[in-house]
């Protein structure tokens, strides 16, 4: 059975980090399993635990008055759910819900934040990587914002 360190090595957001960092990060992690429909975190809550999807998928949602819950994006295996744990004010911007039966690795973000304060180099590495996640999410979101499939956008 794969250790969490080996697992982390192959994941894009942790790719290239030195072994000591991976061990340290793995120390803040544990494997979890959620049933379909479980809420992982809610918009506005303290952002302390973030997740790496291993099997299944996660829906990021928000509630629109008079419209109901709207799915902003779904995340698949290998993707990280949650970056707000690293950026002030450390509060979740969306709800996250297990769309399917979900196996994930949960990370203690509060603990990792502490380690980053102790070791700014690690802090820089993690912040760069999560900023990259944000940039990609932003780019995909912008493309959807263009509403290309709309009647005159097509």
């Amino acid at each position: 059975m794969e250790t969490i360190e080996t697992l982390l090595e192959g994941v894009p957001v942790f790719h290239g980090l030195p072994a000591e960092d991976l061990v340290l990060i793995a120390g803040c992690a544990q494997n979890v399993h959620f049933g379909q429909g479980t809420v992982l975190f809610r918009e506005g809550d303290q952002a302390d635990t973030f997740y790496l999807v291993r099997h299944g998928s996660v829906a990021l949602e928000t509630y629109v008055p008079a419209r109901g819950p709207a799915i902003i994006e779904t995340l698949e295996a290998g993707e990280v759910a949650g970056w707000s744990w690293l950026f002030p004010p450390y509060r979740w911007h969306f709800d996250a819900r297990a769309l399917t039966d979900l196996r994930a690795t949960a990370f203690d973000g509060a603990c990792l934040r502490g380690k980053c304060l102790d070791d700014p180099r690690l802090g820089y590495e993690l912040m760069s990587r999560f900023a990259q996640v944000l940039i990609e999410r932003l780019q995909w979101t912008r493309l959807r914002l263009l509403d290309l499939y709309g009647r005159d956008g097509d």
């Binding site: 998928s57 829906a59 949602e61 419209r67 109901g68 819950p69 709207a70 799915i71 902003i72 994006e73 779904t74 698949e76 295996a77 290998g78 769309l99 995909w140 493309l143 959807r144 509403d147 499939y149």
Partner: peptide, 21 residues
């Protein structure tokens, strides 16, 4: 799909993103 409500249980995201996986 680009966006959906809960009646959709499939993926939500831009189509080109599907290429990577």
């Amino acid at each position: 799909v680009d966006a959906a409500d809960r009646s959709w249980t499939g993926k939500v995201g831009f189509v080109a993103k599907l290429v990577a996986a």
